Computed example of a mutant assay.
Amino acid sequence: MLKRTLALAAGLALSASAVLAQAADVLKVSAIPDEAPTELLRKFKPLGAYLEQQLGMKVEFTPVADYPAVVEALATDRIDLAWLGGFTFVQVRLKTGNAIPLVQREQDEKFTSKFISANPEVNSLQDLKGKTFAFGSISSTSGSLMPRYFMLQDGIKPEEFFSRVAYSGAHDATAAWVQAGKVDGGVLNASVWDKLVDSGKVDTAKVKVFATTPPYYDYNWTVRGTLDPALAEKIKLAFLALDPTNPAHKEILDLQAASRFIETKPENYQGIEEAARAAGLLK
């Protein structure tokens, strides 16, 4: 009986070890859903293949339903690496105390948001007073937090200034709402705006940019704080090695709307935290 018990225990231990070993061979990745899930998957596919080759391990991308889901997944070690906005990074960092931002796109040092409208009479925020307005997700840095912060700096309280404030959930959805006349104005990040214009998915004969925010830090790729430091370093070096003069790398960078990736650090997002507290989004 004792031998059978010991054999069973040993078998269970080996099975557990095998499961852990298998899990360690898979890098679990996600991203804030700031665009449609199909678009996120399309953008990630060549990057995921590149990371698999560089890291020598399987890379799996898992879309999530909303911004808080990414924060929770990183905080509970259910994903290893995530594409975050500045605000979601601050939320993860405050929740875990040890999430590590590895890299950001070069333009994320000076990111901006675009205010748009399809009303030809709208040439400033003041022209939208008493009209309807759309942010993206309430947890979006560029689609909600920073535009709201700059509005407050100018003495504009959105819920009092506009007749109705809505949240579209994503940058491309905000542009679609404005173009369709569902709202009189909206705000989205500059990178998505440029992509929508370049791809013809927004009609600039109907929708125009009438204002741009001051610059701020935004997106980054962050790993959970409990990830093996050696693996985290390999991930960082893989991003930094992406070379725009290499055609295969340029395809990856173009899909990420990146000229190149550069290192980043938690201190870069202190201003985002201060803005979130000023806007009442952090207690």
Rank of each mutant, 00 (worst) to 15 (best):
K129W: 03
G130Q: 11
K131V: 01
K131Q: 08
K131C: 00
T132P: 11
T132M: 07
T132W: 09
F133G: 01
A134Q: 05
A134I: 08
F135E: 01
G136Y: 03
G136S: 14
S137G: 11
S137Y: 07
S137C: 05
I138H: 02
S140W: 11
T141F: 13
S142W: 13
G143S: 13
L145P: 05
L145Q: 09
M146Q: 08
M146W: 07
M146C: 01
M146I: 07
M146A: 00
P147C: 01
P147Q: 03
R148E: 02
R148Y: 00
Y149M: 04
Y149L: 01
F150Y: 15
Q153Y: 14
Q153A: 07
Q153F: 08
D154F: 00
G155R: 06
K157R: 15
P158R: 12
E159A: 14
E160L: 14
E160D: 15
F162Q: 01
R164P: 00
V165C: 04
Y167N: 03
Y167P: 01
S168D: 06
G169E: 05
G169D: 04
G169Y: 04
A170W: 06
A170H: 10
A170I: 09
H171V: 10
D172S: 08
D172V: 00
A173N: 07
T174A: 08
T174G: 09
T174N: 08
T174F: 05
A175C: 10
A175R: 10
W177V: 00
V178I: 01
A180T: 07
A180Y: 04
G181C: 02
G181A: 07
K182I: 09
V183A: 04
D184H: 11
D184K: 07
G185M: 09
G185T: 14
G186C: 10
V187H: 07
L188Y: 04
L188F: 06
N189C: 11
N189R: 13
A190W: 12
S191I: 02
S191R: 08
S191H: 01
W193H: 13
D194C: 10
K195D: 05
L196H: 12
L196W: 14
V197N: 05
V197Q: 09
V197C: 09
V197K: 12
D198N: 15
G200S: 15
V202D: 05
T204C: 12
A205P: 00
A205H: 14
K206P: 02
K206M: 04
V207A: 05
V207R: 06
K208M: 03
V209D: 06
F210V: 09
A211V: 13
A211W: 11
T212E: 15
T212A: 11
T212R: 12
T213A: 00
P215N: 15
Y216L: 06
Y216F: 14
Y216Q: 02
Y217G: 03
Y217R: 13
Y217V: 12
D218F: 10
D218K: 12
D218H: 14
D218T: 09
Y219N: 11
Y219G: 04
N220F: 02
T222F: 09
V223C: 01
G225F: 14
T226W: 14
L227Q: 05
L227N: 02
A230P: 02
A230H: 13
L231K: 13
K234S: 13
I235C: 05
